[in-house]
């Protein structure tokens, strides 16, 4: 079974036509990979389907806009994957 990161990296690579070997756990989806908000909707859709969750993008955006968190906390891939794991775990309870 692929890791969360492997699944997410493959989704990003296929959705945005980004070479898979340029995507690392430290990559920032926006700043490093150049993914814009519209492309991220496709990624979110694929992640939602792959993991059976609903990424709370509206909540994350609000928190960032309020200055209570940075985009790194959500969009650096290792952090994104940790949040996905949390959402999957919460759903399993």
């Amino acid at each position: 079974m692929p890791s969360t990161f492997e699944t997410v990296a493959n989704i990003i690579s296929e959705t945005c036509d980004i070479p898979r070997d340029t995507i690392t756990a430290e990559s920032h989806a926006i700043d490093d990979l150049g993914i814009d908000s519209l492309d991220f909707l496709d990624i979110a859709f694929a992640i939602d389907k792959a993991f059976g969750i609903k990424l709370p993008l509206e909540q994350w955006t609000q928190v960032v806009n309020d200055g209570k968190a940075t985009t790194e906390q959500y969009f650096v891939l290792k952090n994104l994957c940790a949040r996905i794991d949390d959402l999957v775990a919460a759903k399993a309870k």
């Binding site: 859709f45 389907k49 609903k54 993008l57 509206e58």
Partner: peptide, 8 residues
Amino acid sequence: HEGSGFAL
């Protein structure tokens, strides 16, 4: 699909 802030 109904996502957070988007729908298909």
